[in-house]
Amino acid sequence: MFVTPDGKKVFVVDGHTHLWDAREANRRNRYGLTFIEVFWNSHNGLTPEGQRWPWDRFQYYGVENAAKDLFVDGYVDRAIMMPTYLYEFYNQGFNTVEQCSALKAYRPDNVILAGRIDPREGEAGLDRLEADHARWGFRSVKMYTAEWRGESKGYSLKEEHVGRYLEKCRALGIDIIHIHKGPTIHPLNSDAFDVRDVDDVATAFPDLKFVIDHCGIPRIDDFCWIANQEPNVYGGLSVVHGFIHMRPKYFASMMADLLFFVGEDRLLFGSDYGIHSPKWLVEDLMAFEFDDATAQEAGTGLTLDVKAKILGLNAARLYGIDVPAECYRAPPVAMRHAAE
C-alpha cells in the first residue's frame, strides 16, 4: 500500500502484470524479437530516467525481481497477472499461466492469476479452460485478439465461437473478461484496434464484466463511447498511465476524457509490468493534480477519492478482494449520491 504524507493508507491492486521470457533461447523466430522490442521501446521512452532496466533484465526478470518490484518497492498489495501465450513467436510461450504461476507460488497471498481463452481453439480450448480452472481457480480470463494461430493472424469478438467461450466462463463462475486489442488482426484490411465489437458482447452478456486493457488505445475515443453506454465495461489504465511522467499533458487529457465518459468507479490501475514498474507510476499518480481547465473537462479533480479508487478500490470491488480496515475508503459515486 501507499501511505500519503498525512498517513492515509491507499490500497493498491495492480490489474495488469506479467512474468515473461523473451530471451533469445525462447524465441522461435524474428517475430519474438520484434515483439519484445516494441515493449522495450515503450519502456525506454516513457520510464523516468534512472529507473530504466538493462536489456538483459528486460528480456527476463524472473520471480524474485518481480516480487521485489511489485510488492516491496512498488506498493502493490495484489497483482493480477495477464497471460499472453504467443507460441508462434516463443518456444515455451511468452507469458503463460504456467509461467505466471511461479510468482503465485512465491507470493501466494499477493498474486491473482487470470486464465486465458482463445475462441479459435474450439472444443479443445473449452476443455483446457476447464482443466486450467480446476488447477488454478480463476476469477477472470484474458483474451488477446492479436495472437497468431497457424494461418490466422488474430480474431474479433464477432467470431462465432466467442459466445460459447463466454458461456463456458459463466458456467465456471468466471465473470471478469479482460480484452486486449492488438495489431495484425485478420482480416488485414479492417482496423485491428477497433473496439466496437466489445459493445456486442457486453450487451449479450450483461452479467459478465469486461475490462478493456489500455482503454482501447489507440481507439480510446471509441472506447469512451462504448463504456459510457455499457455499465459492465471497465477501463484498464495500463499504457494510459505510462504517459504520466514523460508526457504528462497527454496523460491529463486522456484521464479527463476517461473520467468524464467512463467515470471514476470503472477505471483500474495497471502497470503493464515489466513494461513499466508500479513504483514510479503510483508515486507519480499520487502526486498528480489536474489544473482547473482539466478538472472542468473531467467533471472532477484528481482527488484522493479518485486516486484511491483507481489504484485499488475499484479492482477490489470488481474482484471481491477484502480491503484491510486500516485503508482509506471512498464509496462509488452512485452510492455517495444516494447517501446525500
Binding site: E24, R30, L33, T34, E37, V38, W40, N41, S42, N44, G45, L46, W55, D56, Q59, I217, P218, R219, I220, D221, C224, V239, F243, M246, R247, Y250, S253, M254, D257, F261
Partner: peptide
C-alpha cells in the same frame, strides 16, 4: 476527444519510433 485521441496516439508513435531508430542501447540488433 477524437482529436485528443489521435494526438496521444501520435505521441506514442513518436516515442516508439525514437526508441526504434535513435540508437538506444540494445543488446543486439534485430
Amino acid at each position: 476527444m477524437t482529436r485528443r485521441s489521435a494526438e496521444a496516439n501520435g505521441e506514442m508513435c513518436r516515442v516508439l519510433l525514437k526508441g526504434r531508430y535513435d540508437g538506444l542501447v540494445r543488446g543486439e540488433r534485430s
